[in-house]
Amino acid sequence: MKLSSHKVGRDTRLELPMASMIDVVFLLLIFFMTTSAFVKTERELDSGIRVQREAGNRPSDFEPTIIDVVPSDGGYVYRLGGRELRSQAELERVLRGLENQADGAFVRVSDAVPFDVAAAAIQACRTARFLQVSYVPLDATP
């Protein structure tokens, strides 16, 4: 006797509870969006900046370019040889015209200038392909 038709109803349901997954994904998304807005990209101006107090007094076969960063007329100038340059772009242009990039450059910085101006001078040297750029505290130079 067949009591039932024995019809097995096989319900194969694939359940993927996505709600929690979406919660996590949104949380991560918001986290990274928020933090990335605050992180500012930093690079290094130069990994080979040397600290030399005796920049001008050492006997040497090569003649490095010397740039003085000093205050002038209420502003700041870059002195290179006999020239006074008023902007980073101008300094960079003059430095590009020189041919002793392999000899390196000394950036001598006066106490009276903001660090931003000194950093601009170092950047100009690096952009003009000077191989070695040395930071020299001007007022400490004998």
Binding site: R53, V109, S110, P114, F115, D116, A118, P137, L138, D139
Partner: peptide, 16 residues
């Protein structure tokens, strides 16, 4: 960037 180079110079000289 706004700090006077005096403080950087002093630090650099001390490190030297």
């Amino acid at each position: 960037r706004r700090v006077s180079s005096e403080f950087v110079n002093r630090t650099v000289a001390a490190l030297a």
